[in-house]
Every structure is written in structure tokens, then in C-alpha cells.
Write a protein that binds this DNA or RNA. Structure first.
Lengths: 218, 218
DNA sequence: GTCTATACCACGATAGAC
DNA sequence: GTCTATCGTGGTATAGAC
């Protein structure tokens, strides 16, 4: 093979196989052969597997986070001095992901599946790595949501943010589980975004649970 | 060790380790030693690992699904001839899970983490197995939701059900990712249920997305 | 019914030729 | 910069003693 270009081919193959089989389930051997490179030569570019994993995420998340931050800042400028609306904040968080696919970026769809799956990865070190590299973005958005929803306590907000990320992650990762629930193939990803947005907006805006409501349940 | 009892001990250990490290990440060797049994003796009870996995799920899901069905039927009887309300249907689906923990059932919490994680497992055969064994319950609830929300198209309903299961699965599976978003430990599981319910009810009840709303987004 | 011993294979990682 | 060869580890699964 030619020189210097194998690094990108390996990253592409790793991204695809991590999304398909999970980070732990994809071996360096098959990544190598999918990249039409040799498993051994991965160790020229990265010392250990974890470094390859880190770079697979970095390559996508750095521009993604930048776009999110930029959209959020723009939304806040537009609505100033009032805080950005709930819709605007969620849009800044989510739209760049779907844009990745709409744009037809090579491997973008695979990366979204991978990202959605990662929040529930068994391997803690993976989540820790994401937190280290991109936790600032999460905090920035949580604060913006807090300003958009001043009636929620800090805790209620955090919990709802958690639910929202769950719905989002599940949607991004869905392929097999999709058919279990819906019974047919999904439409376009932008269709999903249009459906997800009102669901999340309504959920965030719901009246808070009363602290003790014994409603037949648990 | 004594006779006949190792089967249950192995199931307990497998449940715990699958929840902790994922089905693929937990080895039969460590399951055996955690159960104070021998890895080899697992093969007396099950032919291959997949069969052990199936039984770990079955042991919990059969009574769980039965309780769900029963609660749903009760809710429908109560509200007849009107369909059961959205809240009642969601409660029948979700409350039995949390009840498993409230009841203090040994290993119940671990199983919920495992279940939540499973929808996003890389291994397709796992999701397929769940579908085969418990798909009927999912369909039953989807239909009940459809009767509670007649204004939604079949497709919109299915998509929102998907979002709701995502939020639920994420909540069940959350341990590491929780701290990333919220920054501290969760309260009791029943507290979670009380918070999740209004979020889902509002999300399901949201006005449907207009079929073509070019809203700055993707 | 449970154990030990082991076959066999794929994994991550290293060394060194080219 | 990329390849082949190989090491040690640990995975699933089997055979057979007890």
C-alpha cells in the first residue's frame, strides 16, 4: 500500500467495526484486514488499542463539539438578553449530529451508532475518556438548559437531561432494537430529528413530579 | 460443593457479571469462580454460553412479563369501556421493574442494569433472542398505547415508543454515564420512576411534528 | 453432578526483516 | 512505514476421573 494514508483507512475501518460489534468486540486483526492494512502496522501509529479508540472518537467529536458550541452561542446571541429557548438549546445539541449524516459524510452514520452505544458500554474507561475530553460541552449545555427552564430544580433538570440523552443515544444506536419495537425500517435521520424534538421539548416542559405521589405504582 | 444448587449460584453470578461487564465481556471462567463452582461444570447445565445467557434472562423476564400483562389487563378492566389511560399503560410497563428492586429481590438491581444495557448490545443474536421470547409483551403494550393515543399515527406512536424505551433503558443501565451528566449519585429507584413518568407522559402527548418543518435544523 | 486437565483458537502486543 | 512471525494470555468448549 502507499504511504501515510493507511492511518486514515485504519480509523475508518475501526469506526465502522466498533459501531458494528462494539469496541471490545472488534479485534485489531479484523480492523487491519478491513483497512487493507496489517494488524501489526496499527502499532506503528498507536501504542495500544485504547489510543486508537481515543482517536476514532476525537476525529469526529472535536468538530462536532465545536459546531454545537457555535450554534449554542449563536442562539444565545439571538435571544439576548433573554436566555436561549429550550428548543434552540436542544437543536444546537442534536442537529449537528444529524447534519453529519445529511451531509453524506463518509462513515458519519457509523459514528453516530458508535456514539449512541458508547454511553452504555461496559468498559468504564471509555466513558471516562469521553468525559475527560468532552465533559465541558455537556456542562455547557446543562447550564444553558437550566437557564431555559428556571422553574426546574438543579436536580430535576439533571434527571431530565439524563432521560433525554437516553432517548437520543438509543435512537442513534438503534438498528437491531428498532425492528423489535417498530417492526420496519426507519425513515431518514432528519425525520427522526423532527420526531424526537417535540418529544423531548414536551418531556422537559412537563410539570415536575410531586415529591410524594403514591399513584398505585411501586 | 453440594448437589443441584450450583445451577442457581451460577445464574446469580452470571447475572451480576453480565450486568457489570456486558455479556461478551464476562467470561465463563470468572462466572464459575464467582459462583464458587468450576467453569467446566457450567457445561453440565448448559451446552454453550448462549444457553446460559438465555436462562439468565428467562428467569427474570417470565415473572416480570406476567406481572406486566396482569397489571395492564387490570387497568383495562378498570377503565372499560374506555381504553386504559397513557399513564396506566406506562405504569403497567415500568412499575414492575422498579418493584423488583423495591422488594429487595436478590440480584434484581443487577438484572435491571443488564436489561437496560441489552437493547444496545452489539451482539444481534441477543436482541433476537429477547424478541423471540418476549416480543409478544412489547406488541401488547404498543397496541394499548395506540388505544390510549388514537390521535397519533401508527408510525408516530412506534417512534415515540422507541424514544421512551430509550430513556427507560438508559435509566436502567446508568451507572457510569450517570455521573458524567449529573455529577452525583442517583436517589432511590422509585424516585427515578416518579421523575421518569411525567417526562414520558408529556413526550407521548406532545403535538406531532408537522411532516415538513424546516426549522433551521438539519 | 462436580471437578481437573487440557485442546484449540483468537486476542493484544512485540521484534525485526524489508 | 509496512510486513511476517511469534509470544503469552485467556477465551470457549471437551474428555474423563471421581
Amino acid at each position: 500500500m502507499a504511504r501515510g494514508e493507511s492511518r486514515e483507512r485504519i480509523l475508518d475501518a475501526a469506526e465502522r467495526l466498533f459501531a458494528e460489534k462494539g469496541v471490545g468486540g472488534a479485534s485489531l486483526r479484523e480492523i487491519g484486514s478491513a483497512a487493507e492494512a496489517n494488524a501489526g502496522s496499527i502499532y506503528f501509529h498507536w501504542k495500544v488499542k485504547a489510543e486508537l479508540v481515543r482517536d476514532v472518537f476525537r476525529r469526529r467529536l472535536e468538530p462536532l463539539d465545536a459546531e454545537r458550541m457555535q450554534r449554542l452561542a449563536a442562539a444565545e446571541r439571538e435571544s439576548a438578553p433573554a436566555p436561549a429557548s429550550l428548543e434552540a438549546v436542544l437543536d444546537a445539541l442534536i442537529a449537528p449530529m444529524f447534519a453529519l449524516v445529511e451531509r453524506g459524510e463518509r462513515g458519519g452514520a457509523a459514528f453516530l451508532r458508535l456514539l449512541g452505544r458508547t454511553y452504555n458500554e461496559p468498559d468504564r474507561s471509555l466513558v471516562r475518556m469521553l468525559h475527560r475530553d468532552h465533559g465541558a460541552t455537556v456542562e455547557r449545555f446543562r447550564d444553558a438548559l437550566g437557564r431555559a427552564l428556571p422553574e426546574l430544580s438543579r436536580e430535576q433538570l439533571a434527571v431530565r437531561f439524563h432521560f433525554a440523552l437516553g432517548a437520543l443515544a438509543h435512537t442513534l444506536a438503534s438498528d437491531a432494537s428498532w425492528q423489535l419495537v417498530v417492526g420496519r425500517r426507519p425513515g431518514s435521520r432528519s425525520q427522526w430529528l423532527r420526531e424526537l424534538m417535540p418529544f423531548l421539548v414536551a418531556g422537559f416542559g412537563a410539570p415536575p413530579a410531586s415529591p410524594r405521589s403514591e399513584r398505585g405504582a411501586a
